[in-house]
Nucleic acid binder design. Structure first.
Length: 137
DNA sequence: GCCAACGTTGGC
DNA sequence: GCCAACGTTGGC
């Protein structure tokens, strides 16, 4: 079991929208590092769902329900998509500023590489953020 | 809206 | 293969 963090701009596709849809195709990734992370995802892996630009906070947990396949939105190039489904929202969102303040989260790629949109997180980091969101695993 | 950080492109 | 120029992302 691996843990991840995925970013989305909430005015484009929010966690609430994912909760409504029940499932979504995570496509449109055009960054090699992020793509390679998508390809490493396994069914059942859990993802922290982060709202970038608006909110700047982790708002929920999603899970991988379909492993990587060719991204149908890619007109050219070698890109991948996965399918994600909602697990649960955090009782209280965990903001970027809280994450930056937390001693156990200083290695988080979200902090160290702001531009990466799909990144692995350790189980410890995942647990800390979920606990900060006051939600049970 | 600005700008820093990063990735990509293209000239040499 | 280097590096400058450019485009994009994302925090502020």
């Amino acid at each position: 079991m691996q843990y991840w963090l995925v970013k989305s701009e909430p005015d484009v596709y929010s966690f609430e929208q994912l909760a409504t849809d029940g499932k979504t195709r995570w496509d449109g990734v055009r960054n090699y590092q992020a793509r390679n992370n998508l390809r490493a995802m396994k069914t059942g892996d859990l993802c922290l769902y982060y709202h970038s630009n608006i909110g700047l906070e982790v708002v929920g947990i999603a899970k991988v329900v379909k492993e990587h396949y060719p991204d149908p939105t890619a007109e050219k190039g070698d890109w991948s998509a996965v399918d994600l489904a909602p697990v649960k929202p955090l009782a209280q969102p965990v903001t970027l500023s809280e994450i930056k303040k937390h001693p156990a989260l200083q290695q988080l790629l979200l902090v160290r590489n702001a531009r990466l949109s799909v990144m692995p997180v350790s189980f410890d980091e995942f647990s800390v953020i979920v606990q900060m969101g006051e939600t049970q695993l």
